[in-house]
């Protein structure tokens, strides 16, 4: 693969068009390097465990489409997270619209896709607490506290200004502590 990839060899919007070879190589490398963390953040941002595979797939479809316009001086990770946030929003919206939780409405003998995550009690509790935060605060909280992104990065990802990030983070932390207290008080199974 030449060093100056990816060249934009195809027209901009043709979803079903095969991806150019060099783009595919780059997508493979991005997938190798970032799929795990993107999977994680999709789950923490409220994509139901049973749908995380689909969400990750959707995310990389977007990456494949948009990559030809990508400049190598860009913040790849920030860009990927920005896509992840929007994918997660869409899945949450779909959940609300469908008014049922696909995770709960299917009893399958197969292991759920991220059984390992579900088995981790702490993650389950965390997700439960996160689900009680308002969405805007949840996004900031997850990106900062779980993904350990900086405030300026979060501002870019969410398209909000820096002060808003700080204020949302402050409120999100308070709300999270409050929910955690309630969870313990009500005999929740916090570790």
């Amino acid at each position: 693969m030449p060093p100056g990839v990816p060249a934009p060899p195809r027209p901009p919007t043709l979803p079903a068009t095969p991806v150019a070879a060099d783009t595919r190589d780059t997508v493979a490398a991005i997938y190798r390097a970032h799929a795990r963390e993107l999977w994680r953040v999709l789950g923490r941002l409220g994509v139901p465990p049973a749908a995380v595979e689909d969400a990750l797939h959707d995310l990389f479809i977007v990456v494949q489409r948009k990559l030809p316009g990508f400049e190598h001086r860009a913040a790849l990770r920030t860009w990927l997270y920005a896509i992840a946030v929007r994918i997660a929003r869409r899945y949450r919206e779909r959940l609300r619209r469908d008014a049922h939780d696909p995770e709960q409405d299917v009893v399958s003998p197969a292991r759920p896709p991220d059984r390992a995550l579900l088995d981790a009690e702490a993650v389950r509790v965390l997700d439960e607490l996160l689900s009680r935060l308002p969405e805007a605060k949840r996004e900031v909280f997850v990106l900062h506290e779980v993904e350990e992104l900086s405030a300026p990065q979060i501002a870019t990802i969410l398209g909000i200004n820096l002060n808003t990030v700080y204020s949302r983070l402050r409120e999100a932390r308070k709300a999270f502590v409050r929910e955690h207290s309630r969870h313990r008080f009500l005999g929740g199974d916090a570790p």
Partner: peptide, 24 residues
């Protein structure tokens, strides 16, 4: 956000560039 804008706002720009180079 456009990837370029994302880069400009990123604090760890050098790290990011390094990461991209690593990916490539």
């Amino acid at each position: 956000p456009a990837p370029d804008a994302a880069a400009a706002a990123s604090l760890g720009k050098a790290l990011v560039v390094g990461a991209i180079k690593a990916v490539v």
